[in-house]
Amino acid sequence: MSYTWQYYDLVLLGIAGSLESGVALGQFTALSSAVTVPVAGLVAIAIMSHALFVNGPVDEPTDLTDEVTALN
């Protein structure tokens, strides 16, 4: 059985990749890590925001009103 990539797998890779690229740019170029890492963090925030608010884990907004019985 082969693994199929899901959207949230790519989200996690995008977050890790953006932060790693910020560190790499700071280490291997003339740019300062104090600049590249926060900019990469903003890219990671943009990726997370898209995953939460644009392509969220619910099918319809009414799914958010379902009662959670596992916590009762």
Rank of each mutant, 00 (worst) to 15 (best):
L19R: 00
M1I: 09
P38K: 11
V54I: 08
S2E: 15
V39R: 02
A24V: 04
N55G: 06
L13R: 06
A34K: 09
G41H: 07
L10V: 07
A30G: 07
I15P: 03
H50T: 09
V37Q: 05
V39C: 10
V37Y: 03
P57R: 10
E20M: 11
L19Q: 02
S21Q: 13
I15H: 05
Y3K: 13
T62V: 13
P38E: 06
L25R: 02
A16K: 05
T69W: 09
A24M: 11
T29K: 04
L52F: 14
M48P: 01
D66R: 10
T4Q: 15
N72Q: 14
P61N: 06
V68C: 09
N72V: 11
L31D: 00
A40N: 03
G22I: 01
S32G: 10
V54Q: 05
G22N: 01
L10P: 00
E60F: 09
V35F: 08
I15K: 02
T29Q: 05
L64I: 03
S21T: 07
A51M: 09
V58A: 10
L13N: 03
G26S: 10
L42P: 01
S49M: 05
T65K: 06
P61D: 06
V37H: 04
T69Q: 11
E20I: 11
E60G: 01
T4F: 15
Y8R: 15
G17S: 03
S18F: 02
A70E: 11
F53T: 04
A44D: 11
D59Q: 12
V54M: 00
G41N: 08
V39A: 15
L64A: 10
G56D: 06
G14Q: 02
G22V: 01
I45A: 15
W5L: 08
G14W: 01
V35S: 02
D63T: 05
G56K: 05
V35A: 04
P38W: 13
V35Q: 11
W5G: 06
V43S: 04
